[in-house]
């Protein structure tokens, strides 16, 4: 009876490093859990967190609805000078990113620190730009 569905556990833990919010996703991000995740994202974005790194190291599965959550917020985040960046994709999820074309609209990095750093570069660039 328990075999009816695969486990639909999903969890997101948020930490902050250098004013960048790191979202550690775990489990299955599907049509159901994406509703819960959307709430989390909504709170973050409404709370003024625009620099987001999504760590997918422990994410087992992501469905199109899961991707939809990022789509829903990316415009607003970018409008406010932030971005959503992804790191630490498993081979399988990386393949899905590739197939769907998400790599063309999102920045995907190999490690969390790289992702955080990439935000700093933007800041430096901006500073330089202003000086000019």
């Amino acid at each position: 009876m328990a075999k009816r569905e695969r486990e639909k556990n999903f969890d997101v833990k948020i930490e902050e490093k250098n004013s960048v919010k790191i979202l550690n996703l775990k489990g299955y991000l599907d049509a159901y859990t994406s509703l819960e995740f959307e709430e989390v994202m909504k709170k973050l974005v409404e709370g003024g967190s625009y620099k987001l790194v999504v760590n997918m190291k422990n994410l087992s599965y992501i469905s199109s609805a899961g991707f939809g959550v990022f789509m829903a917020f990316v415009d607003e985040v970018r409008k406010n000078g932030g971005d959503i960046k992804f790191c630490c994709l498993s081979e399988k999820i990386d393949e899905i990113f590739e197939l769907l074309g998400f790599k063309h609209i999102f920045n995907v990095l190999n490690s969390e620190s790289e992702a955080i750093k990439s935000f700093e570069k933007v800041r430096v660039k901006n500073v330089k730009r202003r000086k000019k």
Partner: peptide
């Protein structure tokens, strides 16, 4: 495995290029 992104993700000029 042809290149190409999903419909509805990005502006058409970028989409078309891919």
């Amino acid at each position: 495995k042809l290149p190409g992104a999903s419909v509805g993700l990005m502006p058409t000029h970028s989409f078309r290029k891919l």
